[in-house]
Amino acid sequence: MAGFEVDTVRKQFPALNEGAAHFDGPGGSQTPQVVADAVASTMVSALANRGRLTPAERRADDIVLGARQAMADLLGTDPGGIVFGRSMTQLTYDFARTLAKNWGPGDEIVVTRLDHDANIRPWVQAAEAVGATVRWLAFDPATSELDDLGPLLSDRTRLVAVTGASNLLGTRPDTQAIAEQVHAAGALVYVDGVHLTAHAPVDASFADFYVCSPYKFFGPHCGVLSASPALLNELKPDKLLPATNVVPERFEFGTLPYELLAGTTAAVDFLAGLGGTGESRRERLLSSLMLLEIHEDVLRAELEARLADLDGITLYGHAQRRTPTLLFSVAGHESRDVAASLAQIGVNAPAGSFYALEASRHLGLGDTGAVRAGLAPYTNQSDIDRLIEGVTRLIP
Rank of each mutant, 00 (worst) to 15 (best):
R336E: 14
R172S: 02
G275Q: 08
V182W: 00
V130F: 06
A67L: 09
V371L: 01
L286P: 00
Q69F: 08
G150T: 15
A262F: 05
D337V: 10
P220L: 06
A301V: 11
G66A: 06
F23D: 00
L240A: 15
A100Y: 03
A200C: 13
R135H: 10
V194S: 12
A184H: 11
N102W: 11
L99I: 14
T323R: 01
V64G: 08
V247W: 08
R68V: 08
G276N: 10
L146D: 00
L153K: 04
R393D: 14
G223L: 04
R321F: 07
E304Q: 14
T92N: 09
N119H: 08
L299V: 04
G164W: 00
A142W: 06
A227E: 11
A56Y: 06
I313V: 13
V224F: 05
P220D: 07
A204P: 01
V83R: 07
L74P: 02
N233L: 13
A132W: 00
L114T: 05
T163S: 10
P26D: 01
E18H: 13
A21S: 15
Y258C: 01
P248Q: 09
T133Y: 07
V391C: 04
A185W: 00
A198N: 07
R50K: 12
L168C: 05
P242L: 12
G275Y: 07
A127M: 09
G27K: 02
A331C: 07
L16W: 04
V83M: 07
Y215F: 13
